[in-house]
Design a protein around this nucleic acid. Structure first.
Lengths: 143, 143
DNA sequence: ATTCTTGCAAATCATTTGCACTTTA
DNA sequence: TAAAGTGCAAATGATTTGCAAGAAT
């Protein structure tokens, strides 16, 4: 599952704009996250890029995804338990996991914040929302 | 932070109703989760109960909280990253974490489901909602 | 030349597993 | 006394750390 390509210069520019030195590895990992919207875990990113970059290490993938997440380029997902997956985060969105096929979907956050600015007097600044159920595709298959 | 006590018989009844054999350890861990609404991790539960039950093992705490979570008695929280905490789950609710004091608050889920029954054609059956910001108390302190 | 980045190997740390002992029905 | 629950010790496995080598400015 790969979407359109992005030029090397665009990737470099993107990293610099986010305050990150554009190393070869970082560019490749960024490209991977931008084009593979499959919510991969660290190992998947490592395995997929390893053929292209034989010297790539797990450490670098860990470090880079951690760095990207600090800089809000990606977000870390921890759906049910310990499995940590990463997602390119162009704009705030929610995640829907289908209990039938296991696929994770990105779902746009309603423009109007679902809970308002305050809840019980607490000021809301951000949110992580995970939805669970049966996806459109699996609903169709069983009916 | 301890709320009202619950009788041993009530705890036993509660476990049996949830299809769980009421062993001594399970009763104690259930009581702990019901009365300490502090979203503890496994180690905290273990440490706090260890003085009362010297033979208690981490394994049992792990097993029991996993069992409780399968039976929907508790829920597992994975706020930001790998820290897994458990919460007694009498009814569906959201969690709010204050970035100033670090405290986690339980927040009731609006009676009217915030996203409806379907979203983008996917059927929603449950949700995990984490809110982040500044809590009521910390807002008051700084103003 | 100095600073940043990478990547290996070792260390760490939470969690799980195997198994023997204990408890309970 | 058979089945279930417990707890120790060892195994696992993901993530982190220290540090030396390499790359970039």
């Amino acid at each position: 599952m790969k979407t359109e390509a992005i030029s090397n210069d665009e990737l470099k520019k993107f990293l610099i704009e986010h305050g990150i030195q554009p190393s070869f590895q970082r560019i490749k990992i960024l490209e991977y996250m931008m084009t593979h919207r499959t919510h991969p875990d660290v190992e998947t990113v490592y395995k997929d890029l390893h053929s292209e970059i034989p010297t790539l290490s797990m450490t670098t993938v860990y470090n880079t995804l951690k760095l990207f997440t600090e800089k809000k380029i990606t977000m870390a997902l921890t759906l049910e338990g310990t499995e940590i997956r990463y997602d390119f985060a162009p704009e705030p969105h929610m995640h829907f996991k289908c209990k039938v096929c296991g696929k994770i979907y990105d779902v746009p956050l309603p423009k109007k914040h679902p809970f308002g600015e305050f809840i019980d007097g607490h000021k809301i600044e951000s949110e992580d929302i995970y939805l669970f159920g049966v996806c459109k595709k699996c609903l169709g298959n069983s009916n």
